[in-house]
């Protein structure tokens, strides 16, 4: 009788403590959740502002003036658009012989005049590219 009373008392005490702990755990987690929500909102708003700024910086007239100032890009004209059927048949792979110096052809490509707005009236000739480039040579050219 007495033993079972103590047992029940202990069970009740344990349950009380457990309930207490769970309650505080839930409370702290809810606070954490609310904080996360606040953070998310803050980030979303920051994102929103950045999106607005991004599209402000991407105004077409601004991009156009930047391109004019810093890049060599020119408006695409119809000579640069073609169809697959217009391509000539593919040339056979050149086999590098011992007497041809790959550097000569590659330097010629690198030094070839680049298209500019002024030169647009005469279409740039297609630049022949060798189909085979040794990696070592590419590195030397880019350096």
């Amino acid at each position: 009788m007495r033993r079972s009373t103590i047992l029940w008392f202990l069970v009740a005490a344990c349950l009380g403590v457990a309930l207490f702990l769970v309650k505080y755990e839930v409370q702290s987690r809810e606070e954490q959740l609310a904080e996360l929500h606040r953070d998310i909102l803050e980030n979303q708003e920051a994102l929103h502002v950045l999106e607005a700024e991004w599209s402000y910086l991407n105004r077409p007239d601004r991009l156009e003036s930047l391109v004019r100032r810093h890049l060599d890009l020119v408006p695409m004209d119809k000579r640069r658009v073609g169809q697959l059927e217009q391509l000539p048949m593919r040339l056979p792979m050149p086999v590098p012989g011992p007497d041809t110096d790959p550097m000569v052809t590659i330097e010629a490509i690198a030094l070839a005049p680049r298209p500019s707005i002024a030169a647009l009236s005469t279409p740039p000739l297609p630049v022949g590219r060798p189909l085979w480039l040794p990696i070592r040579v590419i590195k030397r050219v880019t350096e």
Partner: peptide
């Protein structure tokens, strides 16, 4: 049953 996700 709290609000699902924070949305701006």
């Amino acid at each position: 049953n709290t609000t699902a996700d924070a949305a701006l």
